[in-house]
Amino acid sequence: MPEHFYHKPFRFDTIFSGAELQSTDLGKSISNHIELIIFTRYGENRHNHDFGCEIWDLDFELIVSEAIWEEKFRKSLLKSIIGYEQRIDQVEVEVHISEVENVYPLRKITEIKKKVDITVRGKIRTTGEKYYFNIALFLSPLST
């Protein structure tokens, strides 16, 4: 029996009209689940308080050492992916933080944000294929 993976976000008008939900492939389904892990704060899921990752707690932490911050977040994310995404093995997580400066000359505003690049690599258990996921997040807007 083949498994069905559904496209995110769900289209509620499709659900209520009784039509079939849009499906997606295994790789995209894994990516959607990893995004959910990243975007969920510990304690936010009322049925499982351990689901999520630490980025939302680290977002407001004063970054003394970028290397320590990256490693702390990397370990948190790796633990959650290994624990909650059972469809991939040999999981490796890389996290890199950098600063991005946006200048808005008409408004005379300079905005500095922290950019976090996240890369996840692994192997899909059922097919043996290599798995790759990459996302960039922007944190902590600082404006002048």
Results as ranks from 00 to 15, higher is better:
F138C: 08
R107F: 15
G128K: 15
G52W: 05
K114Q: 06
L36S: 10
E71Q: 06
T127H: 06
I55Y: 03
L77N: 03
I82L: 13
L139K: 00
E92W: 07
F51Q: 01
E111N: 04
I55T: 05
R41Y: 13
D89E: 06
I109A: 04
N32L: 07
C53E: 07
H47W: 12
P2Q: 08
W56I: 08
S143I: 15
F133L: 03
T40I: 08
E54P: 15
E66F: 12
H33W: 10
G27Y: 06
Y131N: 08
T24W: 00
L58C: 06
H33G: 07
V95Q: 03
G27T: 08
L36M: 10
E70W: 06
G18W: 05
H47M: 09
P141T: 03
L58I: 08
S143M: 07
E101F: 14
S29E: 00
V116Q: 01
T110N: 01
K130M: 15
P9A: 08
I68P: 12
D50M: 07
H33P: 08
A67L: 13
S23K: 11
D25K: 00
T144E: 00
S143P: 01
T126K: 11
S80A: 09
Q90M: 14
F133Y: 04
L106V: 13
E101G: 08
I88D: 00
H33C: 12
I37A: 04
L78T: 10
N45C: 13
Y42C: 04
S23M: 13
